[in-house]
Computed example of a mutant assay.
Amino acid sequence: MKQLVWLFKWLLKAAIFFTLFAFALNNQGDVTVHFFFGTHWTAPLVLVVLVAFAAGLLIGVLGMVPRWWRHRRAASRARQAAATAIANANAESNKPPMAPPHGL
């Protein structure tokens, strides 16, 4: 069963690759992208589409970076607060040290 899933994954990857490859071969015509102040760029259509996709991906990742940083900071604070609470509880009860809860 594992080999069948592995084979299916590779067939799906190959189908996606050949579809994109056929798209690239069918769109080799030159297009002109007009920018501001009369500047322009002439390149194959598939290259323009690839650059637009990469730029969108980069903008999306850069837009998520502040949230990722806030999330990491909040997780670090929660981990630190849990460790402090466990240390305080252990100090008050004179019991052997407790392990922190899983996942914190």
Score class of each variant (00 low, 15 high):
D30V: 03
R72V: 08
W69M: 13
A78N: 07
N26L: 13
G60N: 02
W41H: 01
I16E: 06
W69Q: 14
N26Y: 03
L25E: 11
A89Q: 07
P66T: 00
R77V: 05
A75Q: 03
A91W: 03
A91P: 00
Q28K: 07
T84P: 02
A87K: 09
W69L: 12
T84W: 12
H102Q: 05
A52V: 00
N27Y: 04
R73D: 13
A99V: 05
V46D: 13
A14M: 03
G29E: 12
R70A: 10
V48L: 10
A89F: 01
A99R: 06
A85R: 01
G29W: 01
F37A: 08
N88K: 08
A83R: 09
W6F: 15
H102D: 11
T39L: 14
L58E: 12
N27L: 02
V49I: 05
T84Q: 15
L62N: 13
P66K: 04
L57A: 11
E92K: 15
L57R: 15
Q28L: 10
V31R: 03
M1C: 14
A87E: 00
A75L: 06
L11Y: 07
V31I: 02
E92N: 11
F36I: 13
A82P: 02
V46Y: 10
F53E: 14
W41T: 08
A55S: 12
F53N: 14
L25D: 10
N94F: 13
G63E: 08
L45W: 01
E92W: 15
L20K: 14
G38W: 05
A15I: 04
